[in-house]
Computed example of a mutant assay.
Amino acid sequence: MSTRTLYLFSSAAPPVFDIARVIEDAQADGWDVCLGLTPTAARWVVESIDGLATLTGHPVRWEYKLPGQPDVWPKANAILFAPATFNTINSWAIGLTDKFVVGVVAEGIGKGIPTVTMPCVNAAYVQHPQFEQSVATLRSAGVTVLYGEGGFVPNQPGQGNPSSYPWRAALDAVNNL
């Protein structure tokens, strides 16, 4: 069994409902997976939290630990943040770390942890000028952003198909880091 640890982080977007299958796929690729969620994503999958913790063998996290509490996860060898919403991408790029998972990936840049992210945003959101700036900022910081051809291609508002989210492309990118 490999000792490579993957932090798998997800925002509240419909592909998060496939996260158990993604964990199993990552484990089949040889990763020890630790799952982190935004608070809204945690609410979306609240009924599955215990099962997801059992599947990974680690507590599912969505909040910062309190000062003095031990870290319950092993150190990450890589991070995959998918799906990453419009809010998550922009918050991360400008350094707003009020959410645990965004704080970890922001710090991960400085720690040199190889990181992949794949947005899940609709075509209306990507028209906002901050989104392209945020993608460029993350890429310039060394984050692999799977956006556009070969990654996530935005759909029209209300026309997304969560089952077509390219999870395998995201896992392959992490495996190729």
Rank of each mutant, 00 (worst) to 15 (best):
T144V: 09
T137G: 00
I113H: 03
K99N: 03
I109A: 13
T117V: 08
R139H: 00
F100Y: 14
T97Y: 00
I113E: 04
V102E: 14
V145Q: 02
A93Q: 05
D98P: 00
V104Y: 03
G142E: 07
N90V: 04
G103Q: 02
G95F: 09
G108L: 04
N87I: 09
P114K: 04
Q133E: 13
Q133Y: 08
A106F: 01
A141V: 06
A106P: 00
K111E: 12
G103H: 02
N87R: 13
A93D: 06
Q133D: 12
T144C: 05
T117A: 06
V126P: 08
C120Y: 15
W92N: 10
L96H: 12
E132S: 14
G112S: 04
I109R: 15
A123T: 12
V126R: 13
Q133W: 09
C120L: 07
A93P: 03
S134E: 06
E107T: 13
A141K: 14
K99F: 03
R139Y: 00
P114N: 01
I113P: 10
S91N: 11
N87F: 08
A93I: 07
S134P: 01
G112V: 07
N87S: 14
I113S: 04
G108V: 04
G112C: 05
Q130R: 08
I89V: 15
L96S: 11
V143Y: 09
T97E: 05
A123S: 15
E107K: 15
E132C: 06
F100W: 10
P114F: 00
V143S: 12
V145A: 02
V143E: 10
V102G: 05
V135I: 15
I109P: 09
H128G: 07
G112K: 08
S140D: 15
E107G: 13
I89H: 08
V104W: 03
Q133T: 14
G142I: 09
V102F: 07
E132P: 02
T137I: 05
L138G: 10
W92S: 12
T117Y: 02
A93M: 08
T144N: 06
A123I: 12
P114T: 01
A106H: 08
N87G: 12
N90R: 08
Q127C: 02
V121K: 14
V143H: 11
P119W: 13
L96R: 14
L96M: 13
N87Q: 14
C120S: 12
A124Q: 11
V135G: 03
H128Q: 12
K99W: 01
S91P: 00
G95C: 07
N122Y: 03
I109K: 13
T115C: 08
G108A: 14
T88Y: 05
V105S: 15
P129C: 04
I113R: 05
F100A: 11
